[in-house]
Simulated assay, not measured.
Amino acid sequence: MDQSSLLYGALTLVILALSSLYVALVIWSPPPIVTRDSETKYLSNAYPKKPRPLAKLADPSTVDLTIVVPAYNETERLPIMLASTIAHLTSPALKNKRTFEIIIVDDGSSDNTSAAALKLTAKYPKCDVRVVTLEKNLGKGGAVRHGMLFGGGERLLMVDADDASRFTDLELLWEAMDKIAPGHGAGVVVGSRAHLVKTEAVVKRSLLRNILMYGLHTILRIVGVGHIRDTQCGFKLFSRAAAQQIFPAQHLPTWIFDVELLLLAKQLRIPVAEVPIQWHEVPGSKLNVVSASLQMLRDLLIVRANHLLGRWKATPSKAKSD
């Protein structure tokens, strides 16, 4: 066999290998997230039986703050979280100074989370607490995305239903947002637990969880968000201008979606600030560390490959900050 034949054969193998990898990427990439008509409406204490239409992220804001709470089988932990959230938002220091809405997104729960959440709204008749039920379980990322796409806030906060983060630390995020995105500018502020790494809050976590944490940090540096010390804290604040660019471009519905949000912010040149917050471990996590680790690695590779190849991209907003 002459040299040209060998070169041709090698080139053919390379093309076949690259084609196979591209096909695998297309197959493994999550399909577009479909929003059903029932999911564009909410129930509340004021409207317990007649669904009302949600706001749309593309429209102008209607309140100062939207709090998005993804909830999957959270009948036990949700009451505590909601109580601490509303206690802060209605405290004398903030009362009548900041309008807000709370959107609880039931991610296809099997424990009647929606019914329990709707019952809870009766405890807070003067607060705008909305319950949205997804017809099928999407994953935490899908639930957060849905709440954001239908939030009316000038700023939008994602917060976990387990009350692990101290809600009063919202004010720290708010101050940071004022600095990086004054007026109606685009900005993201990330609540961070990085300062707690050597404290009991993290040391007492299981060995597997800590291994996962350090492994994740290594991979994040490789994929391009190593500048953020804690990507996974479920306490993040977005300006409306940032949310309008980021969330329509989000593809991952799984728990590693936070990394995709930060990659999109970096791609869009949206400023991101990281603020230390208080946090504590709460029993009842539904995360399986072994399967989550494998899924994490796969999803990070999928995100990075799709962005590098241009299959997934975000469109910068033409709106200018004030």
Rank of each mutant, 00 (worst) to 15 (best):
K198M: 11
A115F: 08
R98L: 15
T85A: 14
D106W: 07
S4Y: 14
V189M: 07
I33H: 08
F167V: 00
L294Q: 07
L94V: 06
L294G: 07
D299H: 13
L149A: 02
R209T: 09
D37Q: 15
I270D: 08
K136D: 10
P53Y: 09
G151K: 11
H146E: 01
L287T: 13
E154F: 14
D106Y: 05
K41M: 04
I256S: 10
A181I: 02
A273R: 09
K198P: 06
R77W: 07
S109V: 05
T199W: 03
K313S: 10
I228P: 02
V144A: 01
A58M: 10
G142N: 06
L308C: 06
G141Q: 04
A176N: 03
T218G: 12
D178L: 04
L54D: 06
G187P: 15
D299K: 02
P30N: 12
K136Y: 10
V144T: 11
L220Y: 10
V129K: 04
I104A: 03
L138A: 03
L297C: 14
L287F: 09
I180C: 01
M158V: 11
G141S: 01
S317Q: 10
S317T: 15
P60L: 14
E175Q: 14
S206C: 06
L297S: 11
K56M: 14
R209P: 06
I302Q: 00
T168I: 13
G151C: 01
L308I: 11
R269F: 08
S239K: 10
V272C: 01
P248D: 06
L261S: 11
W174K: 13
V190P: 06
D162W: 01
I211Q: 14
R269V: 09
T315C: 10
P283T: 08
F235K: 07
V132H: 03
V289E: 10
V132S: 00
A87P: 11
G147E: 04
C233F: 07
L6W: 11
T75Q: 15
S20Q: 11
F235R: 07
L120H: 10
I256V: 13
A17G: 03
E274S: 02
L170P: 08
L268P: 14
S291E: 13
I256H: 12
A314L: 07
A116Y: 12
I219Q: 05
V259F: 00
S293F: 12
P125W: 04
S20R: 15
L261I: 13
F238L: 13
I80P: 06
L173K: 01
R304L: 05
G153K: 14
A201G: 02
Y47N: 12
S84L: 15
Q278E: 13
S192E: 00
V188H: 02
M1N: 14
K56P: 13
G141E: 02
L16M: 11
Q278L: 08
V131K: 02
A122I: 03
A194G: 01
N137G: 03
D160C: 00
K119G: 06
L294Y: 04
T113S: 07
T121H: 05
K179C: 07
L134N: 09
L16S: 10
I211Y: 13
E281K: 14
V190G: 02
G185L: 03
Y72N: 04
K95Q: 09
P53V: 08
A242T: 08
G152V: 08
T218W: 14
I270L: 04
C127S: 15
V129W: 00
I15S: 12
F150S: 01
A10D: 07
I180W: 04
S291V: 09
T133G: 00
L220D: 05
A314Y: 13
